[in-house]
Amino acid sequence: TEEYTYTDKEKADRAAKEWANRGYTVTVTQDGPTYRVRVG
Rank of each mutant, 00 (worst) to 15 (best):
T1V: 14
T1L: 12
T1I: 14
T1E: 12
T1Y: 15
T1M: 13
E2P: 07
E2K: 15
E2W: 15
E2M: 15
E2N: 14
E2R: 15
E3N: 05
E3H: 06
E3T: 12
E3K: 04
Y4L: 06
Y4F: 12
Y4Q: 04
Y4E: 05
Y4T: 04
T5P: 04
T5R: 08
T5D: 06
T5S: 08
T5Y: 13
T5I: 14
T5V: 14
Y6I: 02
Y6M: 03
Y6V: 02
Y6K: 00
Y6R: 01
Y6Q: 01
Y6H: 03
T7Y: 14
T7M: 11
T7R: 10
T7P: 09
T7I: 10
T7E: 10
T7Q: 10
T7F: 13
T7K: 09
T7S: 10
D8Q: 07
D8F: 05
D8N: 11
D8L: 06
K9M: 07
K9V: 06
K9F: 12
K9D: 03
K9L: 07
E10N: 10
E10Q: 10
E10G: 09
E10R: 10
E10S: 10
E10V: 10
E10T: 09
E10D: 12
K11R: 10
K11A: 15
K11S: 15
K11D: 14
K11G: 09
K11T: 14
A12T: 03
A12P: 00
A12L: 03
A12K: 01
A12Y: 02
D13Y: 15
D13A: 10
D13H: 13
D13M: 15
D13T: 10
D13I: 14
D13F: 15
R14Q: 14
R14L: 12
R14H: 10
R14D: 09
R14G: 07
R14F: 10
R14K: 13
R14A: 14
A15Q: 05
A15H: 06
A15D: 07
A15M: 08
A15T: 06
A16Q: 04
A16H: 03
A16K: 04
A16L: 04
A16I: 06
A16R: 05
A16E: 04
K17W: 12
K17S: 09
K17V: 09
K17M: 13
K17T: 10
E18L: 11
E18T: 07
E18I: 12
E18M: 13
E18R: 10
E18A: 10
W19P: 00
W19F: 09
W19K: 01
W19A: 03
A20K: 12
A20M: 14
A20P: 00
A20G: 07
A20D: 04
A20F: 11
N21M: 14
N21E: 14
R22H: 07
R22P: 01
R22S: 06
R22Y: 06
R22L: 13
R22I: 05
R22G: 05
R22T: 04
R22N: 07
G23Y: 02
G23A: 02
G23D: 02
G23L: 03
G23K: 02
Y24M: 05
Y24P: 00
Y24W: 06
Y24E: 02
Y24D: 01
Y24R: 04
Y24H: 05
T25S: 11
T25Q: 11
T25V: 12
T25A: 09
T25N: 10
T25E: 10
V26L: 02
V26G: 00
V26T: 05
V26Y: 02
V26E: 00
V26C: 05
V26M: 01
T27V: 11
T27C: 13
T27H: 09
V28A: 03
V28W: 04
V28Q: 05
V28D: 00
V28Y: 04
V28M: 08
V28I: 12
T29Y: 14
T29E: 11
T29D: 07
T29F: 14
T29M: 10
T29G: 04
T29V: 13
Q30L: 09
Q30M: 10
Q30E: 08
D31H: 09
D31N: 07
D31M: 08
D31G: 03
D31S: 07
D31R: 06
D31F: 08
D31A: 06
G32F: 03
G32R: 01
G32A: 02
G32Y: 04
G32M: 02
G32K: 01
G32S: 02
P33M: 11
P33R: 08
P33V: 09
P33S: 13
P33T: 12
T34A: 08
T34G: 06
T34S: 08
T34K: 08
T34M: 13
T34P: 12
Y35I: 07
Y35F: 12
Y35C: 02
Y35V: 04
Y35A: 01
Y35Q: 01
Y35N: 00
R36W: 06
R36T: 14
R36P: 00
R36G: 02
R36Q: 06
R36E: 03
R36D: 01
V37T: 01
V37P: 00
V37F: 04
V37W: 01
V37N: 00
V37L: 10
V37M: 05
V37E: 00
R38G: 05
R38H: 12
R38W: 09
R38V: 14
R38M: 12
R38T: 14
V39L: 06
V39I: 10
V39G: 01
V39N: 01
V39C: 05
V39F: 05
V39M: 03
G40P: 04
G40W: 15
G40A: 14
